[in-house]
Design a protein around this nucleic acid. Structure first.
Lengths: 217, 217
DNA sequence: TCCGAAATCATACGGAGGGATGATCCGGCC
DNA sequence: GGCCGGATCATCCCTCCGTATGATTTCGGA
């Protein structure tokens, strides 16, 4: 496990999606000039095809720089489509002929920035820096949670019930009553839960349950 | 305490700030037509003066509908100024001559919406509904936290130290060592903490500490 | 059919939590 | 000076937690 590369530490990539080849290359050059890897696509569908096939979207840190007006899928629709495919890269939108409602809609949908062309290189670089920071933060949150989920997945159904009630603050005795068990059995499940979740204290376990969204009915 | 009115349940008020008297009144009428209380101001400074004097901002649920271009304080500066005064009402901005960068800046700063004039009445009402929902949600989160803070404020310095280490998962014995106390003293502080915080279990206490952002150095 | 994982329970012991009672000491405050 | 709250500690006692040892049952897969 220690030998597996941690995607969080990979160099991030800026994915440029624009039907204007000149602009694509200009942007890619701009990003590379500040030591950022850049990949270009001529359309949203091209990006989706490539990324879904590569299946890299799950572990590729980076962000998207997308023109809102493109043949086929528009930037705004693209924004919505990404979520469906589980791609959660932060998006920076660009437009040559956008209006205020469009920019507001994009920002509401979670875009990091919305730049009207022409924009200054520095504005784009600032936006990309913000987007990459947002992506890195989401990733670190996600990997923490994923480790917890992996551990949680190893629990048996009974152990999960016990976990829920333990972290709800019930005593072994009460849990035993609720589940129609003897207290000793609850203790055993409880001990197993602590081991499997690698919790060093009840406080630990409570925080884990909190992060996992485990609630007691 | 039970007899004090819960601001959460007061009817929300829409605060309209615009230097155009006709538009002010038109908007106030629109809001009242859907049974929303509306108060109008001709400028940002007028709003701040009135609200800060009334000291109602702390418990008045509602939202702001503000024109970005006004004599004196602009809508965007106004947005920044509110935070300084501790006023956290959601803001909807309007503009007659805005541009995309302005709208993006406003949205980044947390505006609920940014409407270009002329807008449809329904769009404004939708925006206000969203703003009021956001305000109500923040309020309910805040009041929950405030109850916790009130309880936490009653703790003595020693009790807070013990709380921090208890919720960090340390045993009484270890806490006693860290604080150079006997175990029995820790137990007493611990018991006092449970009473004062009204925690019915350790799990409870851990969640409270989590919500309060209490971390162990 | 046999094995292993899951689930169940008993007994027993040691450690940890938690309350009650009683006591001392110190520093503000009326 | 006297009072009170905060902090400190002891002793006693009971409950709760955790784990080890040993054992049974059930169920699904090799």
């Amino acid at each position: 496990m220690i030998h597996k590369a941690d995607p969080t530490h990979l160099a991030p990539t800026v994915f440029v999606v624009d039907d204007d080849a000149d602009l694509r290359e200009a942007l890619a050059g701009l990003f590379r000039s500040v030591d950022l890897a850049a990949v270009t696509y001529a359309s949203a569908t091209e990006f989706l095809a490539a990324e879904l096939l590569a299946a890299r979207h799950a572990d590729a840190p980076g962000c998207l720089v997308v023109d809102v007006r493109m043949p086929g899928l528009s930037g705004l629709d693209f924004q919505a489509r990404l979520a469906e495919h589980g791609i959660r890269l932060p998006i920076i939108l660009m437009t040559g002929h956008g209006d205020i409602p469009m920019s507001v809609r994009a920002m509401k949908a979670g875009a990091v920035d919305f730049l009207a062309k022409p924009f200054r290189d520095q504005d784009m670089l600032d936006a990309v820096a913000a987007a990459l920071a947002r992506d890195a933060e989401r990733r670190s949150r996600d990997t923490g949670l994923q480790a917890l989920r992996t551990a949680y997945d190893t629990l048996t159904p009974r152990e999960r019930e016990v976990l829920a009630q333990v972290t709800a603050g019930l005593m072994n005795k009460q849990i035993a009553g609720n589940l129609n068990l003897s207290e000793i059995t609850v203790k055993i499940h409880r001990g197993n839960v602590m081991k499997k979740m690698a919790a060093r204290s009840l406080a630990d376990l409570v925080r884990m349950a909190e992060a996992l969204g485990i609630t007691q009915t």
